[in-house]
Simulated assay, not measured.
Amino acid sequence: MQKKWVTMGDVARAAGVGKITVSRALSTPEKVSPATREKVAAAVAELGYVRDDTAGALSSQRSRVVGALVSSLDQPTFASTIRGLSEGLAEGGLQLLLGTTQYEPETEAELVSALMGRRPDALILTSSDHTLETRALLTRAGLPVLELWELPESPIYAAVGFSNRAAAHAVTAHLAETGRRAITFLTTDRPHDTRAHMRAEGYTEALTDLVPGHAPRILRLSPRAEATGPEYGAEGLAQVMERWPDTDAIVCVSDALAIGAFCEAERRGIAVPGRLAITGFGDVPEVGASALGLTTVRIDGHAIGRKAAALTLAATAGEALAETRIDMGFTLARRASS
């Protein structure tokens, strides 16, 4: 099937008016008579006409499009960030184009290149692990580039996030303070998941500082395309208890893994928190006090998205950036699982 876009000329012929009149009816309807507006509106509805904004973008140097690349669409925490970002951008008349990198810098590079072809007003990324070519491209482009969920030392433009290392340190310290000693960190083995690596570092630092004589135990699960977070968590708990049967606490890299570990512990008759404490990361609804009651790190993903949108709107309006690293913080939500 050959693609044929309905043009403004098609609308003009159907309405029996000129193209300039159609343009005015759509852009400045107050300058056109009610009868003409009705004819144009009827033709637009009948033909299914959609305005082509590319010409306007070329003349104004503004596409009014913002590209966002997230590491994964499987995690509710990212979903809340995208919701906040979309809401904030819409208030400023900007549209959001969304893609997912699956934690692969090479995939990010391809998507960044594709988005740049749309001449976006800004780019939003949920990773600071870029290929050298991608970083050079983004730096040369001079666009507002916001890196979310992390706080890199040298952001391309600005970063909005929190310290993943400090958050994992805090939850591990909580377990140590409650008497846990044989604490294991459970994660997935993705080489470019910088947040997971920083959380592992925070766990290691806390364990070294607060539980002398107990070496860090980190179990990394090989990722599979078809596996879900809870599946990783269930498999991980089984492997942890087989490898280190004296484990009395598990720090999970995400709530999804913590849910799976919790359910597997129940299936095995392992008392939580009596025999084993389990913690997560993210505070998704399923782990709250009214659900599983898992101790976790609470991150306000929606607020991160709204802040990113506000910075984007300010940047596209030509306002100067007051700071390049905005720390949104985190909260340790202590619940029944620890």
Rank of each mutant, 00 (worst) to 15 (best):
W149Q: 12
T126P: 07
L132S: 12
V171G: 00
W149C: 12
L151F: 11
W149N: 09
A158K: 12
I124C: 03
V145F: 08
T188W: 07
P120H: 02
N164T: 11
P152H: 07
G161A: 07
L186H: 05
Q102R: 12
Y103H: 14
E153M: 11
T184I: 06
E110L: 10
P144S: 13
I183V: 14
D129F: 09
A159W: 06
A122E: 00
E108V: 01
Y157P: 04
L146W: 04
R135A: 11
E177A: 15
L175G: 06
G117R: 10
P120V: 01
V112I: 15
S113W: 01
A167T: 06
V145A: 05
V160C: 06
H130W: 06
R165A: 07
P155Y: 13
I183A: 01
G142M: 13
R165K: 15
S154E: 13
T107F: 00
H130P: 02
A159L: 11
A170M: 05
D189W: 11
A168Y: 01
L96F: 12
R180W: 04
L111Q: 03
T188M: 15
A141P: 02
L98R: 14
A158Q: 09
M116E: 04
L97K: 09
E147V: 10
V112T: 09
F162P: 03
S127G: 12
V112N: 04
T131N: 01
P155G: 09
L186Y: 02
L138S: 05
T134F: 05
R135L: 10
G161S: 08
E133S: 10
T187M: 13
L98F: 11
H174D: 03
T139W: 08
R190F: 13
F162R: 06
D121R: 06
E104W: 05
G142P: 04
D121I: 06
S128P: 02
G99T: 04
F162Q: 08
G93M: 14
Y157G: 03
A170V: 04
Q95K: 14
I183F: 10
S128G: 11
A122L: 08
R181K: 15
S163D: 05
L94V: 13
A159C: 11
L138N: 01
Y157E: 01
A136G: 05
T184Q: 10
A158M: 11
T187N: 10
A109F: 04
T188N: 12
H174L: 08
E153W: 08
T100W: 03
E153P: 08
T139R: 14
L138W: 03
R140A: 10
T187V: 14
E110Y: 02
A141N: 05
G179D: 11
P144V: 05
A136K: 15
S128M: 03
S128D: 13
T131P: 03
Q102A: 14
P155A: 09
P152Y: 06
A173T: 13
Y157V: 10
E104F: 09
G92V: 08
